[in-house]
Amino acid sequence: MEDVSRLEAFQAKIDREEKIEPKDWMPDAYRKHLVRQMSQHAHSEVVGMQPEGQWITRAPSLRAKVVLLAKVQDEAGHGLYLYSATESLGISRDELLEQLHTEKAKYSSIFNYATLNWADMGAVGWLVDGAAIVNQVSLQRTSFGPYSRGMVRICKEESFHQRQGYEIVADMALGSPEQKQMAQDALNRMWWPSLMMFGPHDADSPNTGNATKWKIKRETNDELRQKFIDKTIQQATVIGLTVPDPDLNWNKETGHYDFGEIDWSELKEVINGRGPCNKQRLKHHRAAHEEGAWVREAANAYAQKQSDKKKVA
């Protein structure tokens, strides 16, 4: 009985647009949904450091190098912030990393694609951060307080990344013939995977259910995807690049772009661990974590010795 009234009070609070805080009572399923979604988000930020990080040493100018370094560092900061927000739900970072390493937790499939030329550093910022922003702007209104506040903070940096990315693509698209070719190639490879970032069609989306009622999710996958397409097509056209979709068409009646069918079988393969870089990304993360074990142990041992000394003194 008590649970029923608590549940009603919880829902009423959400309906009043008040935020749920870590110390508030919440249904187990709400907590579980958030841990899954927020940790997936955190892992995405961190695994997402790899496809861009591997280009830092090859950045073609010192300015481009510090911009990229700072960008990847921002993503690490986002990961850190999201891990702590997730920890407020009663799970430790070690447990979260364990879930990542045992493939119980996922991260955004987009990071399982390879970055093959310098224009990809533009395309990732423009399209991947661009898609992430659409999603995260929507999440600023999510019902869980720490997640919502995190998104407000993170979104500011993501829009910066998006602009910097677009600048790289634009400069290359308007540059030498080789540069233009690289820019188009990057768009060709990144376009469809970016659209997949929003997840399956609403009709096929298994995780939406209560997430909408609980106002964790405020807009549907298809709504968000459409927003992204509408704002991105013009940006591509302005710099003379072609979006690789022959079915793309401005629809006067809806006021949106119509677009071709996404290859859902590809997304399914990548989600299930069979994308181009899944093994590589996980291996990289695990290796760094395992290689760092002795360092973490040393830091703990040292801290322990120091606190023992204090006790004696």
């Binding site: 990080g53 040493t57 690490a76 990961g79 760094a288 974590h289």
Partner: peptide
């Protein structure tokens, strides 16, 4: 040091 990006012993140290 830039070669170490994403290879730190933990996230804070990576940063």
């Amino acid at each position: 040091l830039s070669e170490l990006c994403s290879k730190g012993p933990y996230l804070e140290e990576d940063i």
